[in-house]
């Protein structure tokens, strides 16, 4: 009994400390400027004025749509491209399968932050600056995705393919109608993860977006900070809440999937 009480106390204190920044952001997004300057923790009344201002001071809605397009595009492409590669490694017996897998996984050691300079030049040469293509294409395949899907495909029984082959089923049809549908839980984990990381990306869109057309919401936030020059923190916090809302909802809904997927990648590795 005593132990349960201690656990609850620890849980509640930790939960308060960890969620405090986000709760404060939500609370501050409803405050007046005076309340923020006074150091209040809760707003005296609820009004959505700050949100209205956040959407008018910068094209926030447009930025949110851009982020959505980019994150969704990367998610779909990653699911298809990583699964295809992983499928070949697991189900198609060919010379060099091990080497290919090793090459793919070895890219986990290449930090994107060490490659972004040259990638920027490449995008510049292609004329892809300020385009969705430039923002998305470099992330269409990741070693993590290929690794995760390989682990998943290895759990599917080989006999399934053997009997399908007897019936004259091609690799591509087997991939589409058996391997993929049977991997739905891991696919959703990878999908959620890809969406989250792309939505949250910062350095790449900072370099690649010089105007509002394709600018993502993360860079929009940086614009808001300088546009509001620090005096209207409530408006900036309304912007923060709008950025956080989609990913937090996704996280709450998909947490169990995500946990299974990430754990599989981490522990079986």
């Amino acid at each position: 009994m005593m132990r349960k009480v201690i656990i609850y106390i620890l849980l509640i204190i930790s939960a308060f400390l960890i969620t405090f920044p986000v709760l404060y952001a939500v609370s501050a997004s409803f405050m007046t400027t005076q309340e923020i300057n006074r150091g209040a923790l809760l707003p005296s009344s609820i009004s959505f004025d700050n949100y209205v201002r956040a959407f008018t001071s910068v094209p926030l809605f447009h930025f949110l749509m851009n982020s959505f397009i980019v994150a969704f595009g990367v998610m779909v492409a990653q699911l298809i491209i990583c699964s295809l590669a992983a499928y070949a490694i697991v189900f198609i017996p060919f010379k060099g399968a091990k080497v290919m897998f090793f090459l793919f996984v070895s890219t986990l050691l290449i930090p994107w932050e060490a490659a972004f300079l040259t990638n920027y030049i490449t995008i510049l040469d292609f004329g892809w600056v300020d385009t969705y293509t430039g923002l998305m294409v470099p992330f269409f395949a990741t070693a993590f995705g290929i690794f995760l899907m390989r682990q998943q495909f290895m759990t599917l029984p080989k006999e399934l393919w053997e009997s399908a082959q007897m019936e004259g089923c091609s690799h591509f049809r087997f991939f589409l109608s058996f391997a993929m549908p049977l991997s739905k839980p891991i696919l959703s984990a990878l999908g959620i993860f890809a969406f989250l990381t792309t939505w949250n990306m910062y350095l790449w869109p900072l370099l690649l977006t010089n105007n509002d057309d394709v600018r993502t919401v993360q860079i929009g936030l940086k614009m808001m900070i300088s546009a509001e020059t620090g005096t209207n923190w409530n408006v900036v916090m309304a912007g923060v809440v709008m950025v956080l809302l989609p990913t937090l909802i996704l996280l709450v809904l998909g947490l169990s999937h995500l946990k299974r997927g990430l754990t599989q990648g981490a522990i079986k590795g």
Binding site: V22, A25, L221, L244, T247
Partner: peptide, 16 residues
Amino acid sequence: AFSSTLGVSVAAGATI
């Protein structure tokens, strides 16, 4: 609650 910061982007987190 404890996994929530996974959904917080670096820009939003740093702004808070």
